[in-house]
């Protein structure tokens, strides 16, 4: 099957396609998140002792933290495609990705604080990973604020795309912030992300939940991009011909 990708770079063709995909992503999101959490809570009964039960926060914490970083990279990719090819839809996708990324960052920080309270005895510490993650939240908010501060859509798209690109430097910093080779040189509370040390049932639950969160992100980003398309293309004839406005 050959798909004409250029066809779907036009908002007019992408709008109905996104509409068809949204329910599929919602079903997948609900299915995988339910499955992942079910596995995580009911299939790991003998893995964790009572003193380690708080470990179960990992399913939503890791899933949201990974999505927060991944969506940032996705947002920058869309913004760059927009800058290079000057396509309207790419900028709309970048802007639609930002808020879901912010939501994921907030979930990761909140669940991380709760986990920190149980395992380190503190809600917050200026540890490298926590600090760089907080800056990621500020960059997301900065991107959204900058975009809404400039009235001219094309200028706001370009300015915020550049801000997003600069902020990309954060993603590897966050990722490597805890992989501190010598504890005497760099202190970090946050444990290393060493997947091989995690028990396999917990790992399965974590990956399945993460996949569910990814599907959730697709669903909400597509819902948002459809709204942005309507807002920006409201004066075109294809929008006024949509069945939403005739019937």
């Amino acid at each position: 099957m050959k798909i004409n990708w250029f066809k779907y770079s036009a908002p007019m063709n992408f709008y109905p396609l996104a509409g068809k995909l949204i329910p599929i992503f919602w079903i997948a999101a609900i299915l995988f998140i339910t499955l992942g959490l079910y596995w995580g809570f009911f299939k790991t009964a003998d893995v964790l002792s009572d003193q380690k039960q708080y470990y179960r926060i990992i399913y939503v914490h890791v899933a949201s933290a990974w999505m927060a970083m991944w969506l940032y990279a996705v947002m920058v990719a869309w913004a760059m495609i927009g800058l290079v090819f000057n396509t309207r839809l790419s900028f709309m996708m970048a802007s639609a990705t930002a808020i879901t990324g912010t939501v994921m960052t907030v979930i990761a920080l909140a669940t991380g604080a709760i986990w920190g309270k149980t395992s380190w005895g503190t809600w917050w510490d200026w540890d490298p990973k926590l600090t760089s993650f907080l800056i990621l939240l500020f960059v997301y908010i900065g991107y959204i604020a900058l975009q809404s501060a400039i009235d001219d859509v094309r200028r706001s798209d370009k300015a915020s795309a550049l801000l997003a690109l600069v902020g990309l430097a954060l993603v590897p910093i966050i990722y490597y912030a805890v992989n501190c080779p010598d504890p005497n040189e760099c202190a970090s509370l946050h444990q290393e992300s060493s997947l091989e040390r995690v028990e396999s049932n917990i790992l399965i639950a974590m990956f399945v939940t993460t996949f569910g969160f990814w599907m959730y992100s697709f669903a909400t980003i597509l819902m948002r991009v459809r709204i942005i398309i309507l807002e920006r293309e409201r004066k075109t004839s294809w929008v006024s011909k949509l069945k939403e406005f005739n019937g």
């Binding site: 039960q53 708080y54 926060i57 939503v60 709760i114």
Partner: peptide, 11 residues
């Protein structure tokens, strides 16, 4: 949850 219920469920 071994005493961690409040934390886990609020997360």
């Amino acid at each position: 949850m071994g005493g961690f219920g409040a934390y886990i469920w609020s997360a």
